[in-house]
Nucleic acid binder design. Structure first.
Length: 255
DNA sequence: ATGGCATTGCAACAATGA
């Protein structure tokens, strides 16, 4: 069984690449972020034709998340529905393939002085309070997506460039730890305790060509799922060629 | 120290990303 996550940076701009990638890789479940479009702009019929069910939480211009699966998606929830009026489409969940899947697009946060950073911290605190209301650590649970947090210094080509920003500071790392403390494991870290593989490279300044990247797209799994993980990798090839997303897909194989 | 590129909505350039 293959589970993936991919920030596509506009599903409209990436439609041809997404469909070709699905056909080649045949993941059982794929979480998508940064759709940058409403549900009606999502290529539902085309992914159906490839054998995928789709649950889409869209938003015009920004954000937007989706879950694709070869098996039906049950109990789909969109947003945290925690009483907070939040117009940003950043979380969708579904039960599929025997797993509860949580797909997240964590706010970027910009710099720590900004209103965007305040929103990021509030959003992560909401997520931490919300998670136990929709899932249990005893579940077969996977939370994956673009976390916009650099977990370890080795996960940045230059940690000093990002230290103190919304992507790398003690506060966001503590919040990531709180998510993990729910009973989740970063499967990349589990299988590569000392290493890293970047998942994002800046479009500018030859970011990919010079491998100036970050590992910010994560697959977190509960104990029962983590025990089934045999390999995980980043599909760097998908960052190459014409009109790539600035993020590459991240995959995990379960037995 | 900054911008560099890409995308969207809108029809020039601002907002956003990381």
């Amino acid at each position: 069984m293959l589970i993936g996550t991919w920030n596509v940076n506009s599903v409209r701009a990436r439609e041809a690449r997404l469909l070709a990638w699905l056909e080649r890789n045949q993941p059982d479940v794929l979480c998508l972020q940064e759709l940058k479009g409403l549900e009606e702009a999502f290529p539902t019929e085309a992914v159906n034709a490839l054998g995928y069910h789709a649950a889409v939480f869209g938003q015009r211009t920004y954000n937007g998340v989706a879950i694709l699966s070869k098996t039906p998606l049950k109990n789909v929830t969109m947003g945290m529905r925690d009483g907070v009026d939040d117009p940003q489409a950043r979380v969708i969940t579904a039960d599929t393939a025997g797993i509860k899947v949580v797909c997240v697009y964590v706010p970027n946060g910009s710099d720590v002085e900004s209103d965007k950073y305040t929103y990021k911290i509030q959003w992560l605190n909401r997520l931490i309070r919300w998670l136990p209301t929709v899932a249990s650590p005893e579940d077969s649970l996977v939370m994956c997506g673009d976390f916009n947090i650099i977990p370890f210094d080795r996960d940045a080509w230059s940690a000093d460039v990002f230290r103190g920003t919304g992507l790398l500071n003690d506060e966001v790392r503590r919040l990531l730890s709180e998510i993990l403390d729910f009973g989740l494991e970063d499967v990349f870290v589990k299988l590569n305790p000392e290493g890293t593989q970047y998942t994002w490279w800046d479009y500018r300044a030859l970011g990919f060509q010079t491998n100036s990247g970050l590992r910010i797209d994560l697959i977190l799994a509960s104990k029962s799922v983590a025990a089934r993980c045999t390999e995980t990798w980043v599909d760097r090839e998908e960052r190459k060629g014409q009109k790539p997303s600035d993020h590459a897909p991240v995959l995990v194989r379960l037995h």
